[in-house]
Design a protein around this nucleic acid. Structure first.
Lengths: 178, 178
DNA sequence: TGTAGACCTTTGTTGGCGCAAATATCCGCA
DNA sequence: TGCGGATATTTGCGCCAACAAAGGTCTACA
């Protein structure tokens, strides 16, 4: 049998195809709201974070972008008024990217149609049991390939101190990023 | 409940995270062989195709790249001697990208470690039943988001004529790509 | 206190990719 | 045969992101 038809390659290809296909399906609704893919992810992550803000570095860790990439994404979003930079009072090197009211509004405006997209191309295709099993499998893989993607979230902060009561979280010993 | 914590967003995020994480895990082995991610996909798809060749347009359809993107990928691979352009005898507009012996060798050299990577971060984590169910779910989604990603493959050609006997497959009525 | 090293962010540079336009070719139809 | 529209590939252009370097700041330790 041809080694190029190995079922592991097929499995990997299938996963990539599904991911790419889903992204392509979501794209139109997002760009209709003037948000690129990565813009949306950024704004969403900010919206989900305590005080709707995140340090640049944490945003980079969560999104997988380089820190310079984050700088420019926030440049664009700040130019459009969806995000603003806020100096960090406890560490003058750092700055927060904080969602503005306009950013929050933009996010909430796209959300319904985006959720409908996910529903119609993904979650809605599966039975409850099937979806549950699928997500459990994904989590199993995620825990192996991405052990530390929670920088700046409540759970990560809780690991070091009672979190969320002060905005300037103490530095935590970050696992080397490679 | 915060609409930003909708389980559909979580599901989508999980899938994206897994995909990105897996890609990141595969990267080192591939780039150690001098192949970028997209290079590897291209070479692999050529290797799997009849006569180890594919028309530029079909390659674009399979990879999701634009046709100009394919032009430049093949430019690079041809410069490195892994692929060569072959004129199509039945259609002087078209050209094939054909895997060279060096390309085939390069592909077979990376394959073992790449398969081991997939095994250790993905398929090897799951029981047989779990993997089967996972792939079935992926196929279900794939069929919805990507109904036509088989351009230039045997199955696609078989739909129009007894295929594979002549290299210059007859044009098939391509579903509009948008 | 002073200093070395780590850390956070930004900026210059480079390479990749999509879009639109240009060129060559094919095909159906009068 | 000759023409118009469709198709295959390439090229010019602009945007986006990674990498590397630079400047400012923090922290541990002597």
């Amino acid at each position: 049998m041809n080694p190029l038809d190995d079922p592991r390659l097929t499995a990997m290809g299938l996963l990539a195809e599904v991911h790419a296909g889903l992204i392509a399906r979501m794209q139109p609704a997002l760009s209709a709201s003037g948000l690129s893919d990565i813009d949306f992810e950024t704004v969403l992550r900010l919206g989900r974070s305590p005080w709707q803000r995140l340090r640049m570095t944490d945003l980079a860790a969560q999104t997988g972008l380089s820190t310079s990439g984050v700088t420019r994404v926030i440049d664009r979003l700040e130019r459009d008024g969806l995000v603003e930079r806020v100096a960090c009072s406890s560490d003058r090197r750092a700055s927060y990217a904080a969602l503005t009211d306009a950013g929050r509004a933009r996010l909430e405006a796209v959300l319904p149609v985006h959720l409908r997209d996910i529903e119609s191309c993904f979650t809605g295709l599966l039975s409850d049991d099937e979806l549950t099993a699928f997500l459990a499998t994904l989590r199993k893989i995620r825990d192996v390939v991405r052990p530390c993607a929670t920088a700046g979230t409540a759970s990560a902060a809780a690991a070091t101190a009672r979190a969320g009561e002060e905005l300037h979280l103490p530095r935590q010993p970050q696992q080397p990023r490679r």
